[in-house]
Design a protein around this nucleic acid. Structure first.
Lengths: 341, 341
DNA sequence: TGTGTTCTCGTAAACGTTTACGGAAAAACG
DNA sequence: CGTTTTTCCGTAAACGTTTACGAGAACACA
């Protein structure tokens, strides 16, 4: 059914070497011959066998995305990544690369799965998400010399790898600025407890902005919770019971915010009326929640496309003649003002 | 770095044929030799090169999932599939298969991408979602003789292929039964306009249940809309303006329900008080919307696992000795009663 | 002991590519 | 016309597997 390079060669009465060179656009083939090969390829519906190419070239032409469900969230996964995947896969496809997704069980840190992907060389590069402050996956990949890029950073101890992150520090500061401008001075911050790196960045921005406004940072207004609805539900009352009650809360995760709002509702406190609620990293849940939550939104699909380019640049076989490059970028989040603050 | 079967052979002073047979658990190898090979494999950190295997066996050891974003929904994609993917990938991984995801642009019918996957033989089987009443993708795959399984059915003109679907007909009927039991007799139904097959199944169940209760089916209470928020928003007023106003609406899609609720709110009609709202196919959005929407929930992760098994059964190289089997299953949806009805 | 059977293993071909190498023909040059 | 260069193409090896085939050794049986 599928025609091979041999079929083309036989059909045209030339050697497979010439066919291959013609197909790959090499210089040492007559323009006329090349055209005949291309015509025949179209006519015979030829498309190259990936296994053959991979075997010969030592490249798989695919990228592995290590997708990790929200730890603790059994019911539903992470809608965040879908538009990101769309951008990523689309751009990769343009360069003839496949996207293979590898998932871990929720909460699993997938070191093992990662090791398997690397050792069996099933992909030419991998994508890591949910980067932590100290991330052993990154150390492993660096040591193995395996190409990769992360969405999110880890604490960079001078380690060089490609990463694309959101500016959580800036978003945290912007959120504070906005709330202060609206008259708030007691502003709480709730972030995920695992040492996910973005939680630290967020808190840095939050603290700096408060200081800039001459507001003292009150540890009683800062809390860490498990990164799911229960976590937000559990930890929100803690900051609300501070001596001097906060008039605003910034949640560093959408689902935690929803849990927090549930707790607030049970305390008879209405977001948008009795308290201002801001979420960092917008998702559809923020939009449809009632009241609709003011949130900071990332440009997910463009980020996916950009990450694809970073990956391509990191793979020797696909990077330009100057060899693999390391690219680090931090993208802004855009405020989407809604009804909760 | 990566050791090959030749390294093992050299290390043990035996032939590569024997090594391969030992690794693959064939009978014609001495038990002692096999053990030595396995030990050496572990010691030398051997893992087979997938390209080599694929080339030789003519199988890629991967499954392609044709993931299609919600048509028209630019902002966010389809959270529905994530838990499904988790189940699917997990089960596939157990059998040594990779999951590669292929996306189309929103609204794109991805016939072209599908053709490319099939012709380049990048996967051993594909998964189709969002099946339509008449689905040319299915016809194409059947004609090409390419293994596949669908999530959802199409109108089965006696065509034989593996499919795993939800019992939308039953859910539609159950929704009506529940509403009738709560005193409703004017019940509207809103479903997606594209000829997605589940919309027809749903409406069948809806109609049959009404008739069973001796309630006349009023065409003015049935409407099709574009499968996104705008679609629900646009079409809901239409049924609300029927001569005899409905007291309940069943939405056949979560996002359409949200758009519909927005329209209702603007008309001053409160779900859960002034009207009963039921959604078929629960998502996180239903849970967090206010009021929380009563909905019918699928067992997504088990469905993913099951579909993996169906795929394995459909691939000659992986099916048992009796050859590929066709499996068709319809799974129930579970009612999750919340506050909207 | 002779014959047939069973175990175990080595040999080599094959899967579909890419590419280094070399050579024949054509072109350029004096 | 002879020599050098260029253009173009064929040959063959290589990537890492799997597997059909056959052969030698061990064993069973009469």
């Amino acid at each position: 059914m599928a025609s091979s390079i041999h079929d083309l060669a036989r059909h045209l009465n030339i050697s497979i070497g010439t066919v291959s060179r013609a197909l790959n656009g090499r210089a040492d083939v007559n323009a006329d011959t090349r055209q005949r090969v291309l015509d025949a390829a179209k006519q015979l519906n030829y498309s190259p066998n990936q296994s053959g190419r991979s075997l010969r070239q030592g490249a798989t032409h695919s990228i592995a995305f290590m997708l990790q469900p929200h730890p603790g969230d059994q019911q539903y996964g992470e809608p965040f990544f879908i538009p990101f995947l769309i951008g990523l896969q689309g751009r990769l496809a343009e360069s003839g690369l496949d996207l293979i997704v590898v998932m871990g069980a929720p909460g699993d840190y997938q070191q093992e799965r990662l090791r398997r992907v690397v050792e069996t060389r099933r992909a030419d590069a991998v994508v890591l998400a949910w980067t932590r402050r100290e991330d052993e996956r990154i150390d492993y990949l660096l040591e193995a010399g395996f190409p990769f890029a992360t969405i999110g950073r880890s604490r960079s101890g001078g380690k060089a790898y490609s990463s694309l992150d959101l500016d959580f520090e800036r978003a945290g500061a912007d959120a504070v600025d906005r709330l202060v401008a609206r008259g708030h001075r007691r502003i709480a911050a709730i972030r995920p407890a695992l040492n996910l790196n973005f939680g630290y960045l967020f808190l840095d921005g939050y603290r700096k902005a408060l200081k800039r406004h001459g507001i003292e940072v009150d540890p009683a207004l800062i809390a860490d919770g498990f990164i799911n609805e229960a976590g937000g539900y559990q930890v929100t009352p803690r900051v609300m019971l501070a001596k001097d009650r906060p008039t605003a809360i910034i949640f560093n995760n959408d689902v935690m915010a929803l849990g927090g709002c549930k707790a607030l509702a049970e305390m008879g406190i209405r977001p948008g009326h009795d308290i201002a609620v801001t979420v960092i990293v917008d998702t559809p849940l923020c939009r449809y929640f009632s009241p609709a939550l003011t949130a900071f939104r990332p440009a997910l699909e463009p980020m996916g496309q950009r990450l694809a380019e970073m990956l391509l640049a990191s793979i020797p076989a696909f990077a330009g003649p100057e060899g693999p490059r390391i690219i680090r970028e931090v993208w802004p989040l855009e405020l989407v003002a809604r009804d909760s603050d």
